[in-house]
Amino acid sequence: MEEKFYTITVYTENSVGLLNRVSGIFLKRHINIESINASVSEIQGVHKYVVLVKTTEDWVRKITGQLEKQVEVIKAFYHTDDEIIYQESALFKIKSDLLFDERQIQNIIKDSNSQIVTVSRNFFVIAKTGRRHEIEELYDELEPYGIMQFVRSGRISVSKESMEISNILKEFQEN
């Protein structure tokens, strides 16, 4: 079966040690986590992991089942790239003199739709939010000038279809 990128969204209770349990499920199956992001969700007190993996649909389905089985996992979903809106963010730290000496850099910033977050005497920082390939393109363009530091975040995403978990929580309250 064909390997593809899948974005797994896991709604959980906020409990210590759960990240260990969640990542262990991937580890056991030798599935590499491309990126993982943990944050609050649209529901108060409910946390959300967004995990990007490259694997087959068969495996992503099994993994989602194993995730959902964990006591503190409320619900897990998986989606292909065309079923979600997704972004990554990146920060580039670059020497300040380049900003003034290399006119081309200003064009790169403008054309790539990135922003200057801060400028100091020694360095300035560019932030870019977008698809992976857009960040990579910007990286390639800036690299010849020298990048002092680079960091890229994990994928964050929302799905086009609704991910209904409020019903699960409501059902619980009614019982």
Binding site: G17, N20, G24, V71, E72
Partner: peptide
């Protein structure tokens, strides 16, 4: 032991 036993318990807690 919570870390060690995570993959071999249904649930654990300290």
């Amino acid at each position: 032991i919570v870390g060690i036993s995570t993959p071999i318990t249904k649930w654990n807690c300290q």
